[in-house]
Design a protein around this nucleic acid. Sequence first.
DNA 1: CGGGTGTTTGAAAGGCATCAAAAAGCGTGG
DNA 2: CCACGCTTTTTGATGCCTTTCAAACACCCG
Lengths: 250, 250
Amino acid sequence: MDVSPFTASMGRAGVSGGGSASKDVTLEGLFGAHPAEKLSAGGAAFWEGDPAAHVFQLIEGCLRLYRILSDGRRAIIGFRFAGETLGVSCQDTYAYTAEAVTPVRFRRISRNRLQAVGEQQAAGLQRLVMMEMLNEMRAAQRHIIVLGQLGAEERVKDFLVSVALRTNVELKGPALIELPMTRLDIADYLGLTIETVCRAMSKLKRNGIIALPGRHSVVLRRIGDMSDMVDALDVVGPVASASVPASLPH
Amino acid sequence: MDVSPFTASMGRAGVSGGGSASKDVTLEGLFGAHPAEKLSAGGAAFWEGDPAAHVFQLIEGCLRLYRILSDGRRAIIGFRFAGETLGVSCQDTYAYTAEAVTPVRFRRISRNRLQAVGEQQAAGLQRLVMMEMLNEMRAAQRHIIVLGQLGAEERVKDFLVSVALRTNVELKGPALIELPMTRLDIADYLGLTIETVCRAMSKLKRNGIIALPGRHSVVLRRIGDMSDMVDALDVVGPVASASVPASLPH
DNA sequence: CGGGTGTTTGAAAGGCATCAAAAAGCGTGG
DNA sequence: CCACGCTTTTTGATGCCTTTCAAACACCCG
């Protein structure tokens, strides 16, 4: 789940006001105390607009986070897999609905409690929460670039690789990944139609870049050929740094 | 600059560990102590990949935040106007380049100092920083929906309205707004080409929805007609709440 | 008053959406 | 265990919207 070497720039290590030692503060530790809850496929953990009383951690399964636009269109903001959190970046009310793609198990912790604990172990926990938000922010910026700059096939490739990276798959050689969500879910996430998503996948298959053993399975046969644009998107790039003219044709 | 009634859900009011009273902690207060710096149009406050040593607050002018993709395309993540902050959501290194659209004045504060102060007045400041990030997150989610779901004309309308909302313009009756950035900037931000942005604007003008007194000026003559989709995007919506079927044609 | 940059408009091409229908999974019940 | 019916996915044909390529126009500044 970790994405890059975290050295943390806000709230270094421990030592705060009158707090106790905050060594090995983990979200898992906090969530662990709470009972696991279950939800069957299609059920909602919460709805857009509900008071954002809790922060969640997904233990198992897959969730889709979405909003319904005034004209009925559905925009999927993101997906969540085992080990990932949701609700951290919500304010007074949830900014999206969280719905189970598969049966899921999760834990929740109330924001009040999170805050209370945070005031004890100040630096440690606050830093963790901050970390989560930074992660979400990075994901959002990446999503923005994908939607704004990439064509259909590129979007699908990016999606497949990102799922692979988030589900612990071995990236040496061909990687088998599961796509629990439907093609429509993927389309609503990528800003495409279901048909375009299908066609993009079919084309990748024709070109031998992926294989489709089953409806919800994909084999990434040549990950190298999928990261054309993709890897360049990860917020890291030292970039040539010098004064780049900035803008070739679109 | 404020966007909605803030009641804050993380870190209620004051009272933390051993901190002093944290009443009226404002970012302005912090930044105010530092000297204002200047930058002429085209200059960069920082580059993508630089160590994220500071957080900035823009006093005057307009900045564009962008990343260059491996193939040379430029993706503008956002713009910043007077009073807004940047760099808050960056981790070890800046995730984008910040470049002056117009001559700008700004202040900066080092993240180390921000953290140090934060450990004193814990709850108060941490909450402010959190608030900033939540704002950015909301903006990012909105941007995602705009890019994923809206057509060219809708995107341009949304952009114009958002600029109006961020620059204190009176929204009663016709509103005159300034667009310091170029059409190319707008295009790179909206995931369109410069020509498409022009055509969308020309069409809005033909339809009497806007007027274009000058290259960098726009008069919003009927804001009501511009908020079709727009207002529905603001993360608030109680929404019909009940179990909506979720998905009309795309 | 020119050169240059930034903007606007036009014509043609391409990509994605839309409409339509066939194929493939998958759960259910016989 | 197989057949049926439903949902999901895939493929095909067509049209619209955005991009691309091209050129005219407007504005800023020296």
